[in-house]
Design a protein around this nucleic acid. Structure first.
Length: 590
DNA sequence: GCCGTTTTCGGCCCGACTGTTTTCAGTCG
């Protein structure tokens, strides 16, 4: 589906060129949206094009359809090329510089001929940018510092890293005597796989506590730079260059602020539009009747002087907008508002629905704990079952098991299983899916196992047809219960296998083979969009931590985060079955 | 540029903070 990605990229760049040209922000937003739609699509855009269905995709209108059609036919867009000749390509990277926006970039370009980051640095250093309207020393210094930070920046953080930073800050803020509530919001609360910055929402016990809380926050020891500080908000950078924002609001406005800063932006825009349709207005302070709000006194940093329709909790705001409560993970403008309006939101899976982990490793291959240690940790998690799935023989670097060692390992797992009555142990294996889709052991060896996860580990740069044939062949193998990390991708590190997902899902649904959401924050594979499409196609999902030690079992939370973003219910996920049902699921294929 | 169960034209979400200004534009989320 590289075509979808190419087009998504085209529209992203198109929107950025339009920003720099000073086009209407609504045009810019429209193309940004098309870029996002293409990026999230689980079918090949070419299919929609060939069926003449481009128009029926919401958000894609006349212009976008024309551009997409031309690009599919010729691999180019003359409209994009035309715009690209009027705006230097070197300006695009400048949009990533914090504090520097399209207006200023265009000013530098038109007044001083700056068309690259290098030229910008040079111009700041030799002082030639001074004297431009609205450009002072502080602004130039700010740009230089932002550039310096970009050089060292690590980019977006993985969700587990961001979570650890956020919980640490939340816990320390909670201990302050001035603080009544504090929660993390933003993309972390929505369980996105990577996090650009952490947003904290905080209420003081008294409305006057804001300034004091902001001050304490900006003086935490790991703060390396204060980006901004007021009475209701503050932003800092940690030593590693990670940004943390805090918003401080009165307790009665906490829900509205939490809602607003949880986002996503697209979700918020839809909510606000809905408020307007109903004669109300929604902002970070609350939901107000438009007439009350217009009359109200407004002072920066204070709630408007009007009685809100709702503001204390998120649920209140949703209810007054005529909507079911929408879980943070669903707030991406992917149909959740329509579903909430008609009371048809799914009952999302929760961490407490999970009864066991079906993919983990022990010292028999590359894990760090023994079977007993893993079992006891699983019991500690409250699990009813656990599958031990060490690596198969071709994973030499991970001490993959030879046939002899595998058979001995199976016996050892069964022996341990008899000792622990409170949990059911499955003697399993994570079997390699070879490049052509064959498995790493003969069928008579696989027949000795209770449970099989089959995973791709190498040959991860195959083309679409080869990769899809490979995975489908493994799906259809009668002993395979779960395809582990089906695309092999690693978050921000390695691209996924380019699978034809419609074929994969159809095969998995027909064969009764589950697809994994690997809960390791480095993998999160399947991702949210694909997991949702899989479940819609009737595929069962398995969420597993792939633990190599006992400390990794709690990573299940990140897999649950992906599942909730994928709108999954407990009924979609085999880890939520009781032991009897799970055994039936396994037996059904053999 | 996109959209429409009042609309095919005229809307489209809103506030805080900074830096540059003497009332506001730009940027950010």
């Amino acid at each position: 589906m590289s075509l979808n990605n190419d087009l998504s990229e085209l529209f992203k760049n198109f929107s950025r060129l339009m920003e720099l040209k000073g086009e209407s922000v609504f045009k810019v937003i429209a193309f940004q949206k098309v870029s996002r739609i293409l990026n999230d699509m689980t079918f090949d855009i070419r299919q929609a094009f060939e069926k003449g269905e481009l128009d029926s995709i919401e958000g894609i209108g006349e212009s976008s359809r024309r551009i997409i059609s031309e690009f599919i036919r010729t691999g180019r867009s003359t409209e994009f090329d035309e715009v690209a000749t009027t705006v230097p390509a070197g300006l695009l990277p400048m949009l990533d510089i914090q504090g520097l926006g399209p207006k200023t970039i265009a000013l530098f370009w038109k007044e001083k001929g700056i068309t690259s980051v290098d030229a910008l640095v040079k111009a700041i250093d030799d002082g030639s940018l001074k004297g431009l309207k609205g450009v002072g020393d502080k602004k130039l210094l700010g740009i230089k510092e932002a550039l310096e930070r970009m050089k060292n920046a690590s980019g977006r953080l993985r969700i587990d890293e961001a979570m650890s930073i956020a919980t640490d800050f939340v816990e320390r803020l909670r201990k302050l005597p001035e603080v009544a509530y504090v929660e993390y919001a933003g993309s972390l609360r929505r369980s996105r796989e990577t996090i650009g910055d952490v947003d904290l929402i905080c209420s003081g016990k008294s409305p006057d506590d804001g300034e004091a809380i902001a001050k304490v926050f900006t003086q935490f020891p790991e703060v390396s730079k204060i980006l901004g500080q007021g009475t209701t908000k503050a932003s800092i950078l940690t030593a590693r260059g990670f940004q943390i924002d805090i918003r401080i609001v009165p307790q009665e406005n906490f829900g509205a602020a939490l809602l607003y800063f949880t986002g996503s932006k697209e979700h918020n825009v839809r909510l606000r539009g809905r408020a307007i349709d109903q004669g109300m207005t929604l902002n970070e302070w609350g939901l107000y009747k438009q007439t009350d709000y217009d009359k109200a006194q407004k002072k920066t940093g204070e709630a408007p002087d009007a009685k809100p329709v709702a503001s204390k909790t998120e649920s209140d705001v949703y209810r007054k907008l005529g909507l079911q409560f929408i879980a943070p993970e669903m707030r991406e403008d992917r149909g959740e508002i329509d579903a909430a309006e008609t009371d048809t939101l799914p009952t999302l899976i929760e961490l407490s629905d999970v009864r066991g982990d079906l993919h983990c490793h022990t010292t028999a291959s590359d894990g760090r704990h023994t079977i007993e240690q893993m079992v006891e940790a699983a019991i500690e998690m409250g699990y009813a079952f656990l599958a031990i799935t060490d690596h198969s023989k071709s994973q030499v670097q991970a001490h993959g098991l030879s046939v002899e060692r595998l058979l001995a390992h199976v016996k050892a797992i069964h022996d341990v299983g008899r000792k622990y009555k409170e949990i059911t142990l499955f003697a399993g294996c994570e079997v390699d899916i070879l490049a052509d889709g064959r498995l790493d052991y003969e069928d008579e060896v696989l027949a000795e196992l209770d449970f099989i996860v089959a995973s791709p580990h190498h040959a991860l740069t195959q083309n679409e047809a080869k990769a899809t044939d490979r995975i489908v062949r493994a799906i259809e193998h009668k002993y395979v219960n779960v395809i582990g990390h089906p695309t092999g991708r690693r978050v921000e590190v390695r691209a996924p296998l380019p699978l034809q997902f419609d074929r994969v899902f159809k095969a998995a649904a027909a064969a009764g083979t589950a697809l994994e959401i690997n809960a390791n924050a480095d993998r999160l594979d399947l991702n949210d969009v694909n997991a949702r499409a899989a479940a819609q196609a009737g595929v069962k999902i398995s969420i597993n931590t792939d633990s190599h030690d006992i400390a990794s079992f709690p990573d299940m939370r990140y897999g649950i985060g992906v599942a909730r973003r994928a709108w999954l219910t407990a009924g979609d996920v085999i880890n939520c079955m009781d032991v009897k049902a799970l055994k039936k699921f396994i037996a059904a294929k053999r």
